[in-house]
Nucleic acid binder design. Sequence first.
DNA 1: AATGAATGAGCCTTCATTCAT
DNA 2: GATGAATGAAGGCTCATTCAT
Lengths: 207, 207, 207, 207
Amino acid sequence: MAKNTRQKLIDAALEVFAEQGYQNSTVQQIVERAGTNIAAINYHFGDKASFYGHVVSHALAQTPCAEAADFGENQSPEEQLHIFIKWFIRNATGINSQPSFLDSVHIQEMMNPSPVLDLIVENFIRPNHMKLRAIVKALLPSDATEQQIRHHCFSVVGQCLHYKFARPVMERLYQDIEFTTEYADELARHIANVSLAGMRAMHKSQS
Amino acid sequence: MAKNTRQKLIDAALEVFAEQGYQNSTVQQIVERAGTNIAAINYHFGDKASFYGHVVSHALAQTPCAEAADFGENQSPEEQLHIFIKWFIRNATGINSQPSFLDSVHIQEMMNPSPVLDLIVENFIRPNHMKLRAIVKALLPSDATEQQIRHHCFSVVGQCLHYKFARPVMERLYQDIEFTTEYADELARHIANVSLAGMRAMHKSQS
Amino acid sequence: MAKNTRQKLIDAALEVFAEQGYQNSTVQQIVERAGTNIAAINYHFGDKASFYGHVVSHALAQTPCAEAADFGENQSPEEQLHIFIKWFIRNATGINSQPSFLDSVHIQEMMNPSPVLDLIVENFIRPNHMKLRAIVKALLPSDATEQQIRHHCFSVVGQCLHYKFARPVMERLYQDIEFTTEYADELARHIANVSLAGMRAMHKSQS
Amino acid sequence: MAKNTRQKLIDAALEVFAEQGYQNSTVQQIVERAGTNIAAINYHFGDKASFYGHVVSHALAQTPCAEAADFGENQSPEEQLHIFIKWFIRNATGINSQPSFLDSVHIQEMMNPSPVLDLIVENFIRPNHMKLRAIVKALLPSDATEQQIRHHCFSVVGQCLHYKFARPVMERLYQDIEFTTEYADELARHIANVSLAGMRAMHKSQS
DNA sequence: AATGAATGAGCCTTCATTCAT
DNA sequence: GATGAATGAAGGCTCATTCAT
């Protein structure tokens, strides 16, 4: 059975919104790619903003989240961190996924936070963050403060996301940058090294 | 003597573009805030895009850049790194500066790179990057590769910028975050610790 | 049943473009006369230039062309020429036709040729020209050159069109000019006489 | 002594108006080419329309008119007609003169007659017409009516002007047309032959 | 006499939304 | 449920004109 109009609209929107962002996309473009007509959006979803929310929800529901992933439960926290970072940076650099709709949304929401950001935080970022937090907590001294844990989490994530957000800048600073799977893994190794060293330093500074 | 129209337009644009971004801002809004009329933009700057470029150039010309700043030339590289990070994160978290126009532009250009990004990279980011690079190079083993130096620079910058780009997310993850000057300095201390530990780890791994 | 918007727009445009020319006409005027709104033009025809092309095509499709007309196939070439000229000048002087949109376009395109002129030449002028050419060829000596045929055609057409293009001048040179059907036929008689005499002179000059 | 601003504006306008027509030309373009500023036009000439009138008057004053030219006063009327046509068509086809400002104006005024047309008719077209009229009158039977004289004059002029007005059409009908001085003279010969044959036919039809 | 600056009116186009079948 | 047609609001830009020095 053919996809119904509603689904065709969402699929088309995932592409168009990812390519051009919410503001730059027109409903015309979306319905053209969906092979339907402009009134369908309003019929199925109300207005453009509401449509956008539905599309984001749909994308979140289908996105594999750290919660479900296996980061080597039986291995050392050090190894778990490395696996987490590898998984995270592969997604961030867009190698394992098509030019990611959610990444595009993520960046846009940094600029203009909208109710959509709440959806993303609660359904995607927070679970990931809690997963990372557990690993980090295991790596830090037992008396590490709440804030210290946070900061180390943010250090890990900040280093990873930089390769997503700042890529246009990196390409201008250095012309020879190319993001292959191998390079992503190399970056993961580097970030894991730095982060682990940073956490280990807390142990030493206490002794 | 009253500011001339050209200056009033730029001042108004700095506000409006910072608040709403390039796409969302209308020239109408800007000229209203400037107390002039729409044709003035065409007269002084051509079209909207060209106007945007002028405004960015103006902002860049007035922004203190790492090149000119003093990061403690006579102190140890470790101390220089700490000073650099403190300076960088204070700017990034928008404490030492006016509600930052350039930050807003920076984020927007990450999403939709335009010719303006080249301006920012060449006149702002690259000088800062080279300054940081010199410090990092002094901290790494003498046989550190070009790429290793880059990665450590990006780790430093990534950790700092995360507190600029991801702030909307952080505020949703944790309600109790507040960015004071003291907190910025605390973050700088943390990032410097992590980064230095990461660099020192390279020395050990060699021996 | 009321005419649909598309047709109303074309009808209004035929009037407005004819009265004021393409440049001087505003889409606002046209949609007002059509009793619709400005976005309808974009919906049905794209932009103003494309709309103009559609209107010209529409007018061409409804204009009787020499190809279909009967110029007395069974009569002498002399008589055919006279009939052709009579038909041509009646159209040119705007007696047999509505206040001529195509004439207006024709003149404008002489001043500022646009892609529309190609439409008119291929769908209107060239067929007429070929019809006249056949008649002229029959009237000239059998060894008349290609160019001689052309020149006699242009002489015929030039004399006729002068009463279209130069009418504002004629009205200023002589106040008592009035273009009735009878006068148009008198002009046709005159032009036919001159043209036939010119062609016959070629026969004499050969003997 | 350098040309004063007034003269520089007129010279620039002659070029710009000739190239683009009155409507398409902007005062900005003109003052740029004149190397002066936009307020000068209003200062010296009032508004754009008034400026246009001044430019036309200036051009008329400098244009050689048939009145002054010598068309072979001592030669036969036949020869005088040939000389007149040669002179006329050379001007019409723009060979003897730079891309003619007055020709451009002439065509535009056919489309949208303005007060400027009166200037041109009285100071340029009528003198030419009277000159031609005298020649034609000498060639026609002595009892030729007023209207017959007119019609023959218009036949001559119509044939000539066709090569000015309809050139865009001719270039589309035949790709191999090129207007050289030799070709212009050939056309003059043709038109003279046709016109003289037409006039002689009146003598015969009487006998 | 000349000029840089400023202005208001108008134009074309785009777009999300709604209407009517 | 689906669709082609229609619409109103708004935006960027152009241009002739005027102002103030």
